[in-house]
């Protein structure tokens, strides 16, 4: 009986991990533009270089690719000092490609689940709006703005304003309402909720 329970627990944890992996793989940014740009750059650059080098290796005195003669002429005339802006641009492009290769933030907030074949998410903006909607449902709250969850700490900052002069336990009520709404969504990593309440002071 105990062995069965332990096996079930291990299997469930394994399934959860697989589901998390699928969600991360599916909702990670694809970097399609950087991929296309890099592939086009490598294909055209190396293709032109290969044709020119082959022509030179075969002893041909002409440049088969149109425009390369002018480029080769410019390369002979200019010094390294002349091409500092171009070198800077190439360095910048390289840094941009390297930055694009970083994993990046997931597109949406993944939902908790234990099916390894299923991944779900709710958009970040949609989560913020639904949390703000929950906060506005608390009597006395007139305005609600939500920020986050951030990429590092994952804190959901809920700024609410009431027209009351005595806020009493409104912050707790808002926290409860937001918690209840998050319970209805069940994100994979439940964000911490930081409620900041403003009230009338005149």
């Amino acid at each position: 009986m105990a062995e069965m329970l332990v096996r079930d627990l291990i299997e469930e944890e394994h399934n959860r991990r697989q589901a998390r992996r699928l969600a991360v793989r599916e909702f990670r940014p694809r970097r399609a533009f950087a991929g296309f740009a890099g592939a086009l750059l490598v294909t055209t650059g190396c293709g032109v270089a290969a044709i020119e080098l082959l022509a030179a290796a075969l002893g041909s005195g002409v440049h088969p690719v149109p425009g390369v003669a002018a480029v080769a002429d410019a390369l002979r005339r200019h010094t390294w000092r002349d091409v500092l802006p171009a070198a800077g641009a190439i360095t910048f492009a390289g840094a941009a490609f390297l930055l694009a290769a970083l994993p990046g933030r997931l597109r949406g907030v993944p939902l908790a689940g234990s099916d390894p074949r299923q991944a779900g998410a709710i958009g970040r903006t949609a989560l913020r709006r639904t949390v703000a909607d929950a906060a506005l449902g608390v009597p006395g709250i007139e305005r609600a703005r939500v920020r986050g969850p951030g990429p590092f700490r994952g804190v959901l900052v809920v700024r609410v304003t009431t027209g009351y002069r005595n806020p009493a336990n409104l912050a707790d009520l808002v926290r409860q309402a937001v918690g209840a709404r998050l319970d209805r969504i069940e994100p994979m990593r439940r964000p911490q909720v930081d409620v900041r309440l403003g009230w009338r002071r005149d």
Binding site: R30, R31, A34, G35, G38, A39, L41, V42, T79, W80, R81, D82, V83, L84, A86, A87, G88, A89, I90, T91, F92, A93, G94, A95, A96, F97, L98, L99, A100, A101, L102, P103
Partner: peptide
Amino acid sequence: MRIPIAATGAVLLACGAAALAAGL
């Protein structure tokens, strides 16, 4: 597809940085 992007970026960065160093 991130590995080829990173490789392209690393080569471009190295070439650009070397050209900058040579020019300076």
